[in-house]
């Protein structure tokens, strides 16, 4: 049935289409130019990214290095769950973290139903949307960002891209090297389906915490908070 349908549908489409050669179609497409992007809240991409994470109902912490990042994870877990346990993908970036220094007890692997917190390593962040980009693979199970109640994401400040186009232009994705899933995660799971009231934790995480690791301007987080319309230091730094 499907083969016959395919033949008939493609024949109809061919009958309607111009039957032009690929080169002229691609030339015409290239001539259409690029789409405008959303205005950035700040000229610094890292500040813009953090501002948009906050606007997306996430929380943000900054960490100068891996040790500080582990401490930030530990503070978050203790504050929210009174626990030091979490699940992390087998990502080499995460495996190499000094977990003991922060008193965190990670289990490396795929989150099981009932486990509360998971940490993902995002190879990219998008300043335009405040999204962390997660790529499924050996080290990055999708369950870890879809199933926990608390989803923590580690992203390096050097890997924050200005906009969506910058991500796609950087990702060549040739045949045979395309990951199964590329997810732009920009907030905790939410729904407005009951009388238009926004509720978090519809299916996935109720809370989304992003830790930006690396070089960040000294006042960047405070400025991001101000731009997002939140009181500065709204994210408690202590346990």
């Amino acid at each position: 049935m499907s083969d016959d349908s395919r033949r008939r549908i493609l024949a109809r489409i061919r009958g309607i289409g111009g039957g032009r050669d690929a080169a002229s179609i691609e030339r015409e497409l290239a001539a259409l130019g690029a789409a405008p992007g959303a205005p950035a809240p700040d000229e610094d991409p890292v500040t813009s990214f953090m501002c948009n994470v906050l606007r997306n109902h996430g929380s943000v912490d900054i960490a100068a290095d891996r040790r500080a990042a582990v401490e930030a994870v530990g503070r978050y877990l203790y504050r929210e769950l009174r626990s030091h346990r979490l699940v992390a993908g087998n990502d080499p970036h995460l495996a190499a973290m000094p977990w003991r220094d922060g008193g965190v007890l990670p289990r490396f692997g795929t989150l099981e139903n009932g486990e509360q917190a998971a940490l993902s390593y995002a190879p990219w962040g998008i300043a335009e949307t405040g999204a962390t980009v997660l790529v499924t693979g050996r080290y990055s199970p999708s369950s870890n960002h879809l199933l926990p109640v608390h989803h923590l994401v580690l992203v390096e400040s050097a890997n924050i891209l200005p906009d969506l186009e910058a991500f796609w232009q950087r990702s060549e994705l040739p045949r045979g090297k395309r990951p199964r899933g590329i997810s732009f995660v920009a907030g905790p799971s939410s729904t407005g389906d009951i009388e238009a009231k926004l509720v978090y934790g519809a299916h996935g995480p109720q809370a989304w915490h992003v830790i930006v690791m690396g070089e960040v301007a000294p006042d960047a987080l405070q400025r991001a908070n101000e731009l997002a319309g939140r009181a500065a230091q709204s994210i408690p730094q202590d346990a």
């Binding site: 948009n52 997306n56 405040g130 499924t136 050996r138 899933g181 997810s183 732009f184 920009a186 799971s189």
Partner: peptide
């Protein structure tokens, strides 16, 4: 300005994928 999830799927899990 942005939904919580914008995902792109290419096909089945790859040989080494966790899920």
């Amino acid at each position: 300005d942005q939904t919580c999830y914008t995902s792109f799927y290419s096909g089945p899990r790859r040989a080494a994928d966790a899920d």
